[in-house]
Amino acid sequence: MEDITTILVVDDSLLARKMVASFASEVCPDAVIIAAASGQEALQKLEGATFQAATIDYNMPGMDGLTLAEQLRREHPHARMALLTANIQDAVAQRAANLGLEFICKPVTEESISAFLRGKGGSSCSS
């Protein structure tokens, strides 16, 4: 957890970004948080910078969360990434698993964000 210095938060909802960011900064008070409202914005803001953890909303206008994760994975093979969704479908879950993504169920809670950042698995999500 000490190795997390940069956290990427991608969500089209301002509210969701705020909530994730506030929970994340309680767990990792020293980390820099890069917030983006879309996949495109996230790629622009990163501009080659690295991050150790990312939460990515699945359902976003334009590029969806899985597509973004796919692109990020190429540059950041070791980063810890989680897909945020209320939409757990087998097909989505399978594609996410192939990219080594964890799941965080929406709505996010302090517990689910903390578990993810501490590496205690965020993929249990009851519908």
Partner: peptide, 30 residues
Amino acid sequence: DAINEVFNIGMGRAASSLSRLVRSEVGLSI
């Protein structure tokens, strides 16, 4: 924005329930 997110989450749930019913992926727009 907040209300949008509330419905977004709701629709996500609906999609996952529906996909269980139809046994295939259900795509839902924002």
